[in-house]
Simulated scan of single mutants.
Amino acid sequence: MSRICELTGKGRQVGHNVSHANNKTKRTFLPNLQNVTLLSDALGKGIKMRVSTHGLRTVEHNGGLDNWLLKAGDDKLSASARKVRKEVVKKLAEKAA
């Protein structure tokens, strides 16, 4: 399983460990991913996702999963998140009609 946030697209970064003698060795910085169940108001159910803690904060800031998915671009979202967004849009269109 890749270490990439399903909502924000945040992934690993590469850098150096720097010793006291200024020796540099390669290392990776991994995002803080959590397995969470986010509640969708439009769908009326929980959706399990692997999300970074930064992603969780932005979802809460935007007022929930549905609002976040409607605002997010396709380039950031994973395939499963795009599928959930499509379901949310469809459900909201049914309610509006």
Rank of each mutant, 00 (worst) to 15 (best):
N23L: 13
L92P: 04
W68E: 05
N22D: 14
Q34Y: 12
S2D: 12
D75V: 02
K91E: 09
E6D: 07
W68I: 02
I47L: 04
R27Q: 05
L38T: 08
L77R: 05
R85W: 02
T37K: 15
T28P: 11
T25Q: 08
V84M: 01
P31Q: 01
G46M: 01
F29I: 09
V89A: 08
R85Y: 01
R50C: 07
T28E: 14
K83E: 12
K95E: 04
V59Q: 05
L39S: 12
T28I: 08
P31E: 02
N17D: 12
T58G: 03
K45W: 01
D66F: 00
N35L: 11
K24Y: 08
V89D: 01
V36M: 11
R50S: 14
S19Y: 01
N22Q: 14
R50N: 11
E87R: 10
L92E: 06
L69M: 04
Q34A: 10
V14I: 13
K71V: 04
H20R: 15
R57N: 10
A79R: 10
H61L: 07
P31H: 06
N62T: 06
K83F: 02
K90W: 02
G63L: 00
M1P: 15
G73L: 03
S78D: 03
N17H: 15
L92K: 10
A72H: 06
I4Q: 13
I4Y: 08
